[in-house]
Design a protein around this nucleic acid. Structure first.
Lengths: 145, 145
DNA sequence: TCAGTTCTGGACATCTTTGTCCAAATATCC
DNA sequence: GGATATTTGGACAAAGATGTCCAGAACTGA
């Protein structure tokens, strides 16, 4: 349902939100989030191009969030790597009842709209807090190795 | 977000719900729903194995719903071809806080739960009615060629 | 300047999804 | 029984998603 890439991007973003100002190298993040390092590199590049993270090179380089965690929503992360495609017109390419969706696609788009709404309301800061007694990602991962 | 296969399966199911008792051949359905016939054949086979449709061979053969349209939910169709995977445990394979999800995956699973709930409430009969002034699939497709 | 570190971007490998094609099995009609 | 219509299932092809690898650019510290 959610692509692997989306999952990876979110894990990385949450990790960065937790890491505060310290730039995290690709391999740091890979270790913590259990994402294949080579692929994570690609994902971080996407997030970079989308203006969500910022990478700096050389010693003490790495990735940081490009904005405060409270200003970055889950939706932005998702849309950066694998955009949530709303259904605007019936996929059967017909001109009839322009714009208005048939009952099936109306229902499907409603579901997408609900996800969009719910993801727009949550920022990385909300997730990084560890509210509810459970730390972000998973407890053990948060024991920063 | 929803796979091509899911989309195709739903279109076919809605079409069959509209068609009542008349068995529809694969190519009938393919034409009406604009799905590649060869692939649709595979999708219908999946739906058959899941007990959602029933195919009969030979002249006057084709596919029909295996149950009344009012007894088949969207969720059943979706789960037959591309099961909605809830998130039961943190994907980071850690033993910590067994069962309890971290904030990120809690949020993601909530979204999945909402879809599941909403799809469980809608039957093919609901969609086939054409309520709201818009016929199922798309108007033009319903002009049965 | 030099060595070491890290991102960047491209080429490529692998796996999954989507799509095509066809022979065989089964049903109907004459 | 023979001709035709249709599903069934398998093999294969094409495209996309995921994953690997490496050469080069850019930064840091000495």
């Amino acid at each position: 349902m959610f692509s692997q890439t989306t999952e990876y991007a979110l894990r990385a973003a949450v990790w960065l939100a937790e890491s505060g100002a310290e730039p995290q190298t690709t391999s740091d993040i890979a270790r913590a989030t259990q994402v294949p390092a080579g692929y994570l590199s690609k994902v971080l590049q996407s997030l970079g191009r989308a203006g969500i993270v910022h990478g700096s090179r050389g010693k003490h380089g790495g990735f940081e969030l490009a904005k405060p965690a409270g200003d970055l929503t889950i939706l932005e992360i998702v849309n950066a790597v694998d955009p949530l495609q709303r259904i605007h017109t019936c996929p059967l390419n017909l001109e009839a009842h322009r714009g208005k969706l048939c009952p099936l696609h109306r229902k499907m788009d409603d579901a997408l709209a609900a996800i969009e709404r719910s993801f727009r309301e949550v920022t990385l800061a909300d997730l990084a807090g560890g509210e509810g007694g459970v730390r972000p990602l998973c407890e053990a991962a948060c024991v920063r190795a």
